[in-house]
């Protein structure tokens, strides 16, 4: 009974998320927007690389591939963190539905997961567009037949679970804040962007930065993606001594640890919000 209820809540919250993602305009402009946005992001990377190469005199194309694939997949981190906290803000302050969802017998966790899945689907489309643009127009050497797809799927699954658990923790904290939750998730995403080897390899960070990078699961997730896709792997990432299997173990265990912590933070945020009367807070933002 509970299982069937959860399935139903998951299905319809995913549907709701998709409607809110896509229903703001007609299908044609939505498709154009969905393709143009990631391509624009890719072109920003090209400009950034050109400037770095121009100033530093480095023309290591491997570095560009490293940046390109890392940034493409980092979209999942940025979008999921943003999306999951936005659900709380949007449902509470904009649509004023959060209180009705909260007092319903449905599992709020499941609802949040459903809403996040729709964000993942939209982001997946953006990542595919970015990678395809890179392969066809920017010379990113992705050998589709040479990819270990099984490993890639496992890595993606664990990595996304990890990102979603981070999002859940932020959602718990979002119960306690008003519009500031946007700054909070941008801040957390910024930390990941800086320390997880997205825009540059973590080997160029100071020692303490490398130590911090090595406890963040996103670092291993992006490294594993690069390895499975065989893109940008010639770069010194300070993770060369860690085998793919060990990286997978580290990613899995750290994901479990962060997921447990995230559930705890979410429940604490929920409890504090209920104590303070913030579940249906409207701040006129």
């Amino acid at each position: 009974m509970a299982m069937s209820m959860n399935r139903r809540v998951f299905k319809w919250s995913t549907w709701l998320g998709w409607q809110l993602e896509s229903n703001w305009t007609d299908p044609f402009p939505f498709i154009i927007y969905s393709i143009a946005k990631p391509i624009a992001g890719s072109l920003i990377l090209v400009v950034m690389y050109s400037i770095i190469a121009g100033i530093g005199g480095q023309t290591d194309i491997g570095l560009f591939h490293y940046m390109y694939v890392s940034n493409a997949f980092f979209m999942f981190v940025a979008q999921v963190l943003f999306g999951i906290t936005w659900v709380i803000h949007d449902d509470r302050e904009h649509y004023r539905t959060l209180k009705y969802l909260y007092i319903s017998p449905s599992n709020f966790f499941v609802y949040m997961m459903g809403r996040t899945i729709s964000k993942l689907l939209v982001t997946t489309l953006a990542v595919i567009v970015t990678m395809a643009f890179g392969v066809f127009f920017l010379g990113v050497p992705l050998d589709i037949l040479g990819v270990n797809w099984l490993l890639f799927i496992v890595v993606m699954f664990i990595g996304l679970a990890c990102v979603m658990s981070f999002g859940l923790a932020l959602a718990g904290l979002s119960f306690l804040t008003a519009k500031h939750s946007m700054g909070m998730n941008e801040g957390v995403a910024g930390i990941f962007y800086m320390f997880c080897g997205v825009i540059f390899p973590i080997s160029i960070l100071p020692a303490w930065g490398i130590s911090l990078a090595k406890v963040l699961p996103v670092t291993y997730w992006l490294e594993l993606i690069r390895r499975t896709l065989d893109l940008g792997v010639g770069i010194d990432t300070a993770l060369a001594g860690i085998s793919t299997v060990d990286s997978l173990w580290i990613l899995s265990i750290s994901t479990i640890v962060f997921a447990i912590i995230s559930v705890g933070i979410f429940k604490l945020g929920d409890y504090v919000a209920r104590s303070r009367g913030l579940i249906d807070m409207t701040t006129a933002y």
């Binding site: 069937s4 319809w12 549907w15 409607q19 809110l20 319903s104 017998p105 449905s106 609802y111």
Partner: peptide
Amino acid sequence: YGLLTVRENLWMFSQFYG
């Protein structure tokens, strides 16, 4: 949810109530 129709809104909530 202003982007949904009346029926869609109601249907969705009916599903959240099982």
